[in-house]
Design a protein around this nucleic acid. Structure first.
Lengths: 217, 217
DNA sequence: TTATTAAAAATATCATATATTTTGGAAATT
DNA sequence: AATTTCCAAAATATATGATATTTTTAATAA
């Protein structure tokens, strides 16, 4: 995937965010301007802009006169994020289902198909596909909420989802067939427009997800 | 209230945010760096940091190569924000009540007392107290959620609440005794730890709030 | 009116300079 | 040995000026 942004700032923003989510920049790591300047080859002013944005997103913490560092992780934070994700994603899903239409159903089906492809690869222990799997997992869940007809809700979900994603990449592992079945059920209940059941599966899905957290905080 | 921040950036951030929320910087207004530089007496680099942060918060929109402008307002956005506020604030309130304790009950009582003072002033048409009233209204609602034991939830609520506040100051007016009664009921049900009823009042309170939006979008 | 285009304005980025604050460790004190 | 004091080095905060690009404006041509 080639850079789709023009500006240095936008590209570097994506790079740093990715490095935080993927754990290349470890939690609590001090983000020294001069160091980043060398590593990302951008000016300090541009970097400060980027870190300011990231602190708004919650991936970076800023302290006056002390500077920036990567947001910490903790088990309690993970639980908070998971609960928030259940709240937001369920809520959005409800509206997506109310607004359900053939277009959306089609895109959901498509998203699930692609996700399932990578799930099967991972079942066969092709762990090098992990990053692709996460990508399609994200896309599937984004699609779930996309039809809710509230941009604020979609934006919010993306934010929370990214935070959850960070934990997944840091401390969670592929759960195997359990997760696969949940995705399938989720799809089916959505196509049936059965919110109650879909919601239950979704909640279970997210809750099951964090049980697999290894205790390496 | 004297500036409690040291840095120019922090102070100017608060100023610009306030100017957006209070409508001194109108929706869709282009935020030209040079103009801001003159008005707020800060350098362009500092301003870009600030605007980057505000775009993360959703008060400013950023477009590559085009720069920054004040986020637009619309009736549909207001409705989205209100719904989101109901969702988040109710959810947080539920946990606040579950964790209820004398300390929190005391602070809630105190917050309501102060709010009520200003509500009564406004009833007597002392409209110059409007900004104080909003301040104590904010504090009361912040107190409602403060006991939920989830920092993520508290942060999120603050963000949404500020967006709602902006609409209140731009297009909404004081509803009078209806709002006052709702606050009182809310307090009472909270002290009784009756989530169901408290939640109903809260939802009603927020819904009633946006009915008063005049159509000047 | 619409399209074209050149000039002006504004953004994006970087480098550099200065003042201030924080940090890390040496030296002094308890 | 532990704590405090104090200074130099590192890092942050802010401002300014320079340059390349991009967008906007407005004048001109079709």
């Amino acid at each position: 995937m080639i850079d789709s942004y023009k500006t240095v700032g936008e590209n570097t923003y994506e790079m740093i965010k990715k490095d935080i989510i993927f754990g290349n920049l470890k939690p609590l790591k001090k983000l020294k301007l001069n160091e980043l300047k060398n590593n990302y080859k951008t000016s300090i002013s541009t970097l400060r802009e980027i870190l300011s944005r990231l602190s708004g997103d919650g991936f970076v913490v800023y302290e006056e006169q002390k500077g920036f560092y990567v947001s910490p992780v903790s088990e309690s934070d993970l639980k908070e994020i998971a609960n928030l994700r259940i709240l937001i994603e369920s809520h959005a899903l409800k509206y997506s289902l109310e607004n359900s239409n053939p277009d959306w159903e089609g895109s959901l089906l498509a998203a699930h198909h692609k996700l399932n492809l990578y799930e099967n690869k991972l079942l066969k222990n092709k762990t090098e596909e992990r990053s692709n799997w996460k990508r399609y997992d994200s896309e599937f869940h984004q699609t779930l909420v996309r039809n809710c007809n509230s941009n604020n809700l979609i934006e919010l979900h993306k934010l929370i989802f990214d935070k959850y994603l960070r934990y997944q990449l840091l401390v969670l592992t592929f759960r195997g067939s359990g997760s696969i079945e949940e995705h399938k059920k989720l799809l089916d209940y959505c196509l049936e427009r059965n919110f109650k059941k879909a919601q239950m599966v979704l909640e279970e899905h997210i809750q099951n997800g964090i049980i697999h957290a290894n205790k390496s905080f």
